[in-house]
Design a protein around this nucleic acid. Sequence first.
DNA 1: ATAATAGGCAACCAAATGGTTGCATGTCAA
DNA 2: TTGACATGCAACCATTTGGTTGCCTATTAT
Lengths: 104, 104
Amino acid sequence: MDEVFKALADASRRSLLDRLHARNGQTLNELCDGLAMSRQAVTKHLAILEAANLVATHKHGREKLHYLNPVPIHEIGERWIRKFEHGKLAALSTLKRQLEKRDE
Amino acid sequence: MDEVFKALADASRRSLLDRLHARNGQTLNELCDGLAMSRQAVTKHLAILEAANLVATHKHGREKLHYLNPVPIHEIGERWIRKFEHGKLAALSTLKRQLEKRDE
DNA sequence: ATAATAGGCAACCAAATGGTTGCATGTCAA
DNA sequence: TTGACATGCAACCATTTGGTTGCCTATTAT
């Protein structure tokens, strides 16, 4: 799971996921368009996303197509994010109460 | 939002959030226990969590108490994770279909 | 008053990260 | 078949990151 969090920690990589979410199955060159960095930099980012299982690829002739895999994102939502949403109100009220002690 | 993702990208920091989730309002020294690293390293991690607004602190005498703020985690869930859950089935079926082309 | 406790600050260091460039390879089209 | 196109590989570089150590300050307890 650490790999997924690390992969999501970079804005360029999140942008790549966004673009695949908007249109799945893009080639490397398509994903490079408009991303002020070299093709090789994008390749590295995609490799990290692939290692985290967030992107799957499929070679078609000389093109490499990239597909979004939403499962790890979903798992983070399920196993991590929701845990902190549970009891959110309780945590907030504690937080509020303690911060108000500043004024004592 | 980038700060929040970056803050969550480290296992030690996620562990600190876990521990605050288990028991809110711990001091720095309490949070150090069992975390094979120096107090100063923990201080730095907590500073990053604080900068990302994931932790709020409150000085009480010579102690510094740390409180979890679940709001940024919730926002990531709302604004980012859910987006990818929407259309998850569609993405998965495309993914499956394309990966099966390997066998053609 | 003095010692112990809780924490802060700053300099330093190794390794990881995010990027580059140059060149090589494989595939398609004329 | 030959040139153009899509991608891969490797070396290199600067900056960031995660950690350390040493010392300083503030608060509490004896």
